[in-house]
Each structure stands twice: as structure tokens, then as C-alpha cells.
């Protein structure tokens, strides 16, 4: 579908920018190259931040951080979620129940303190952030995988395999995983979405890693250094928010089917 392609194209742009950021940014985003709070000029199209770093360069660097955090956390969340989901659906009974309960519990637990606890133990930094987000995001995947695997489990060929004495592990690998695999890609995009949004939210509250140049951190500083009291929000707070929106848009478009036709087709 065209929407899907548009989404992939959008993601592609950000992946490109993120991968080649050091060649694309006009200045080192960590270097102070202009007067603090400079408005946009020919040399600095988006002006400078509160200590004189080039905002455009920060924005480009932000694609890198957001992507890295998003992909790493998304992958970790989906990995954990899939394993737990499969366990809950096809594991030995006590383990399955525990896996199910763990999913439900994690869904209910408030995210903010969990984030602080995990970050405190891991000492801040991007690695900690990835784990924090993964710890928050995995149950969503687990739930979906669990539901799908359950419906697969009651299919005839699986029942047949079971009656022939196949073990749980064998069934999970031979029959359930292939059926779930298609879902996982969509779940991954969804998890990246959650991860990017969570990173931005945590960073905005000042609970991320403020020394990183992510879009969320840019918004944090724009807010903390009064961009919203002046015109500066136009070139300082608008662009990172827009980039984040476009990136999430790309993920949504790539990961979802919108029209009835594709939905019917998927059936």
C-alpha cells in the first residue's frame, strides 16, 4: 500500500540522517559555535540553543539518539515480550501462569517510579534508558503474542501434533512461532514508537540523560530555558517536536493497515 510505503520512506529518511549524522551536521552539536539564544541566521538556520550550540546540528544528532534508543529498546521489548507471551501460551502450566501474571502486573505498575528506580541502579546514560523503556514496554507485545499463540494452539494441526506426543517446546518452535512471527514485525514498530515517545517524555521530565542530544532532551532544555516565554519556541521547540511526530508517523504508517481492503486481504 502507498501509506505503508510512505511510512517506510519516512523512516528511511530518519535512518539515513541518523546513520550519516556526523557528515550531515553543519557543526559539531556539542561545540559552542554561536552566542547563546541566537535567532536563526544564514550560518545557523535554526539558531543556537541556550549555550550556543547549533540547533540544526542538535536536531540531526537527535535522529541518531532517538533511533538508537528506539530500535534497541524496541528490539529488547519485543524479544522479552515474545518469549514471555509464548511461555504464557505454551509453557508448562506453572510457568505459563507466572508469565501471564507477570505481564498483567507489569501493565498495571506505574511507569514513572519504575523508570527512576531502574535508572538509579544503572547509573543513568543511554544504556540505562534503553533498559528502562524495555522494562516498561514489553508487556504490550507479550499480551498480543499470547493472544495470537492461544488461538493458534487450538488449531487442528497443533492439536494433532500434541496428540502425537509432541512436546511444548517443539510445538512452540514448529507451529506457534511461525504463526506469531508476522505479528512481531508490527509489534516491533509499535515498540519503537512507544520507546521514542517514552524517551521524549522521560527526558522532558528531566529523568532521561540530559547530556545526550535527543529530541526529548532538546525539548527539555527549550522548556527549562524559557523558549516558551519568547519567540524562540518557533525554532527551538517546534522542530524537535515535529521530527518526533514525523518519525512516529512513519512508524505508524509502516506498521498498520488502514483500509478495509488490506484488512480483508489479511484475513
Amino acid at each position: 500500500m502507498t501509506a505503508q510505503r510512505a511510512g517506510l520512506a519516512l523512516i528511511g529518511v530518519f535512518v539515513f540522517v541518523g546513520m550519516f549524522a556526523p557528515w550531515l551536521w553543519p557543526y559539531d552539536p556539542y561545540e559552542r559555535v554561536a552566542d547563546p539564544f541566537s535567532p536563526p541566521s544564514a550560518a545557523h538556520p535554526l539558531g543556537a540553543n541556550d549555550i550556543g550550540q547549533d540547533i540544526l546540528s542538535e536536531l540531526i544528532a537527535g535522529a541518531r539518539v532517538t533511533l538508537a534508543v528506539g530500535v534497541a529498546a524496541g528490539a529488547a521489548a519485543v524479544l522479552v515480550g515474545s518469549v514471555v507471551g509464548l511461555l504464557a501460551a505454551a509453557g508448562p502450566v506453572p510457568l505459563a501462569r507466572l508469565a501471564y501474571a507477570a505481564t498483567e502486573i507489569t501493565l498495571i505498575i506505574p511507569k514513572l517510579p519504575v523508570a527512576i528506580v531502574v535508572a538509579a541502579y544503572l547509573g543513568g546514560g543511554v544504556g540505562a534508558l534503553v533498559l528502562v523503556i524495555a522494562a516498561i514496554a514489553w508487556p504490550v507485545t507479550a499480551r498480543v503474542v499470547h493472544a495470537q499463540a492461544l488461538s493458534l494452539r487450538s488449531r487442528e494441526y497443533v492439536l494433532a501434533a500434541r496428540s502425537l506426543g509432541a512436546g511444548g517446546w517443539w510445538i512452540a518452535r514448529q507451529h506457534l512461532w511461525p504463526g506469531v512471527r508476522g505479528l512481531v514485525w508490527v509489534q516491533f514498530l509499535l515498540a519503537v514508537n512507544t520507546a521514542a515517545l517514552t524517551e521524549a517524555g522521560l527526558s522532558f521530565l528531566g529523568l532521561g540523560d540530559p547530556t545526550q542530544k535527543s529530541w526529548g532532551v532538546m525539548l527539555h532544555y527549550a522548556h527549562a530555558r524559557s523558549a516558551f516565554l519568547t519567540d524562540a519556541w518557533v525554532w527551538w521547540a517546534l522542530p524537535p517536536g515535529l521530527c518526533l511526530t514525523l518519525f512516529l508517523l512513519g512508524l505508524t504508517l509502516a506498521g498498520r493497515s488502514f483500509t478495509g481492503r488490506t484488512m480483508n486481504h489479511a484475513k
Partner: peptide, 25 residues
Amino acid sequence: VGVSVAVNAMPAFWVGMLLLATFAA
């Protein structure tokens, strides 16, 4: 659908700050 997807992708706190800057100050 386009509008829905776009609105869905906007971070809430960012929208809040923009509204604050535009309508409250």
C-alpha cells in the same frame, strides 16, 4: 485517516506546551 495518524503521533506534553505558549501567555 491522515489527520488521525498525524495527531496520534504528536507527543502530548509538546502539544500542551505549544498551547500554553500560544493561548495562555
